[in-house]
Design a protein around this nucleic acid. Structure first.
Lengths: 172, 172
DNA sequence: TCGAATTGTTTTAAGCCTAAAATGTTTCTC
DNA sequence: GAGAAACATTTTAGGCTTAAAACAATTCGA
């Protein structure tokens, strides 16, 4: 006749032995909803940028990063910030230099490094687009109360931290 | 000397006349955070799918749609559900038929329509991947309490509705 | 019933994106 | 100071993605 501790142990081992597939349906549904929201808004913004300004979303995103860095950024910085691959940035920058929106030069102190920044034209065009872009975002989120916004900010911060922790454990 | 009502009116008209750019910084920050969360998780899932199963995320997503539809789906259905362009689905399906995961046939009743469904192989492989995929998602969201999850579900539903409303108004 | 819209899919052209290998540069270490 | 390790970027190969035009089949309306 097993002692209480054995019973508890048995319960534990049973859940393991039977490999009871724990139910994570809720998290899965949450992930799908998160993805849907993002895809929906992203698609909307992409389309409006194209229609109003004939610019692609990745180009806009890259210019947004540079607008916050008057002294320029290295390609690696951009790549990390935008969470895209290095090679991707190389091509994106190439096209934006070509169109006169970006200026690229090799660093004086480290010849591996390319520093890019917005040209006068690039900055002017970006500011024009950004102003309108901000109103689109406001419209898209219009039905959220300020409290909703705060609460979402909090929960998404928590989500981000959780995901980063898990990602870090998986591949440190 | 203006009456009180004039003062109020003036305040109103001033905000308009000066075209005071209303501050939507909070919504913008929310959008960027939403995007960051999604990109982070999506990248993690993409990498794990590749490493563990040598499959791409779009392929997995397409198979996930079909797993829920035993009788198959039309390409348009898939396109709408996945929120991607028609042409995109065409290519994706082509490659999955080629690799033996999908079966494609022209509808008997409407010769415009292509109906696709998972093959036996496709379904077996998807189930195997999906089981592990679900645990990854659970891990990535592990630090959220059940209450957090419920609250996020609610707020994201509200966000989706708001965005759809705005998108609908913009291009009906 | 015949032509005009509508619908479902494919094609096209261009660009985006990734992982991995290659190239050039700097730093570290002995 | 020479070689090894680390770093920043580019190249490569392949796949994803979109918008728009083209094509094919159905449905609608006079």
């Amino acid at each position: 006749m097993p002692a209480v501790s054995d019973c508890i142990e048995m319960l534990d081992s049973e859940t393991k032995a039977a490999e009871t597939p724990e139910d994570h349906a809720e998290e899965l549904r949450l992930w799908l909803r998160l993805l849907t929201c993002t895809t929906l808004i992203e698609g909307e913004v992409r389309g409006r940028l194209r229609q109003r300004f004939d610019v692609t979303l990745p180009r806009f995103d890259l210019m947004a990063q540079l607008d916050k860095a008057p002294d320029g950024m290295t390609l690696s910085d951009v790549s990390k910030r935008m969470m895209v691959s290095n090679g991707n940035v190389t091509g994106l920058v190439e096209r934006l230099v070509e169109s006169g929106h970006l200026d690229r030069r090799t660093s004086e102190t480290d010849r591996r490094v390319q520093v890019i920044r917005l040209t006068k034209l690039g900055r002017a065009e970006f500011r024009r687009m950004a102003a309108e872009h901000e109103t689109w975002i406001a419209e898209l989120f219009a039905d959220l109360t300020p409290k909703d916004v705060r609460e979402l900010m909090r929960l998404l911060a928590k989500t981000k931290a959780s995901a980063q922790k898990s990602a870090g454990r998986h591949r440190p």
